[in-house]
C-alpha cells in the first residue's frame, strides 16, 4: 500500500482504472442499499432501477435520444463559437502586451459576472430562439477560455523566442512558426477543460422557452416531481462529458506525441 502513496509516483494503469472503478462501484452500492432498504424517501433519491426504467422509457418513446441530440448540437456549436474566437484573441493577448492591455480589463470584468444574470438580457436581445441559448453558452465559456489560451501562449519560454529571433526569424514568423506550434497541446487541454464548462451551462441555456434538450427535460422533471428523470438527465450529461474528455485526451496524445514532459 505504501508504495502506491508516494509523491507523484505513477500508478500502474490497471491499478489506476481499478481505483476509479472501485470508488464509483462503492458509491453505487451505497446508493442501492440506501434506496433498497427504504431508508430514504424515493422522492428525494430514487432507486437505480427507477432510473434504468426512465431510460428505457425515454429510449422507447424517442425523447431521450432526441433530447441528447439537440443538447449535443447546442453544446458543440456554443463551444465551437467560443473556441474559434478564443484561440486568435487569446493568442494575441498572450503574445502582444498591447492586446492584453486592451482586452484584459474587459474580459476580467465579464468573467466574474454570474452567467444567470445574462438570461434576461439574452432574451431581450435575441428573443427565445436558438441564438439566445448559444449566447448563454458562449458567455459562460468564452471569457474563461480566452484567458486560458493567453496563458497557454505565455507558457512558451522566452529563450525559445529570443533564440529564434537571433536566427533571423521576424516577430510574425515567430508567432506563426514557434509560438503557435509550441502552445497547441496546451490549447487542446484548454479546449477540453472549457468544453466541460460549456456543459455546465446547458441547463441554464435550456431553462427558457426550450421545448427539447437534456437541460429542459431536467427542469421539466423538477416541475412534475419526477426525480428519476432528473437523475437520468444528469447521468447522460456526465457520461457524455466524460467520453468527450477521454476522446480529447486521446486525440492530444495522438497529435502531439512530443508533448509528454513539455511544460504547457
Amino acid at each position: 500500500m505504501r508504495q502506491w502513496l508516494r509523491l507523484r509516483r505513477p500508478l500502474p494503469p490497471h491499478l489506476a482504472t481499478l481505483l476509479g472503478a472501485t470508488f464509483l462501484g462503492a458509491l453505487f452500492v451505497a446508493w442501492a442499499a440506501a434506496t433498497g432498504s427504504g431508508a430514504v424517501n424515493p422522492l428525494f433519491l430514487p432507486a437505480p432501477g427507477a432510473i434504468v426504467h426512465a431510460a428505457i422509457e425515454g429510449l422507447r418513446d424517442g425523447t431521450l435520444l432526441d433530447d441528447t441530440r439537440i443538447s449535443l448540437i447546442r453544446i458543440t456549436v456554443g463551444w465551437l463559437l467560443s473556441t474559434v474566437a478564443a484561440i486568435p484573441i487569446g493568442t494575441l493577448m498572450g503574445s502582444y502586451p498591447f492586446f492584453n492591455a486592451l482586452l484584459e480589463p474587459f474580459v476580467g470584468f465579464i468573467r466574474y459576472l454570474p452567467v444567470p444574470a445574462f438570461v434576461p438580457l439574452s432574451i431581450l436581445w435575441f428573443g427565445v430562439d436558438e441564438r439566445q441559448k448559444l449566447v448563454l453558452l458562449f458567455i459562460g465559456t468564452f471569457f474563461q477560455e480566452v484567458l486560458m489560451i493567453a496563458d497557454n501562449v505565455r507558457a512558451v519560454p522566452q529563450p525559445l523566442l529570443e533564440s529564434s529571433a537571433t536566427f533571423g526569424f521576424g516577430d510574425r514568423e515567430i508567432l506563426r512558426r514557434v509560438i503557435v506550434p509550441y502552445a497547441l497541446p496546451g490549447m487542446m487541454d484548454t479546449m477540453r477543460i472549457t468544453l466541460g464548462w460549456t456543459w455546465t451551462y446547458l441547463v441554464l441555456a435550456e431553462e427558457v422557452a426550450a421545448t427539447r434538450g437534456l437541460g429542459h427535460t431536467i427542469m421539466l422533471a423538477q416541475r412534475y416531481l419526477a426525480p428519476e428523470r432528473i437523475l437520468l438527465g444528469i447521468f447522460v450529461i456526465g457520461l457524455l462529458g466524460m467520453v468527450s474528455d477521454l476522446l480529447f485526451q486521446a486525440l492530444t496524445r495522438k497529435l502531439f506525441p512530443w508533448a509528454r514532459g513539455v511544460r504547457r
Binding site: P159, E162, S164, T166, F167, V178, Y182, W258, A259
Partner: peptide, 27 residues
C-alpha cells in the same frame, strides 16, 4: 536581433515539436 549574430543560451532553447534533425534544419 539578426541572423549574423546567433546566440547560444545556457538553456538549449530547442523546438520541442521538432526532432533533433528538425531542430537544426528549421533554422
Amino acid at each position: 536581433p539578426g541572423p549574423e549574430r546567433v546566440m547560444l543560451f545556457q538553456s538549449p532553447a530547442l523546438y520541442p515539436w521538432l526532432t533533433t534533425l528538425g531542430n537544426v534544419t528549421f533554422v
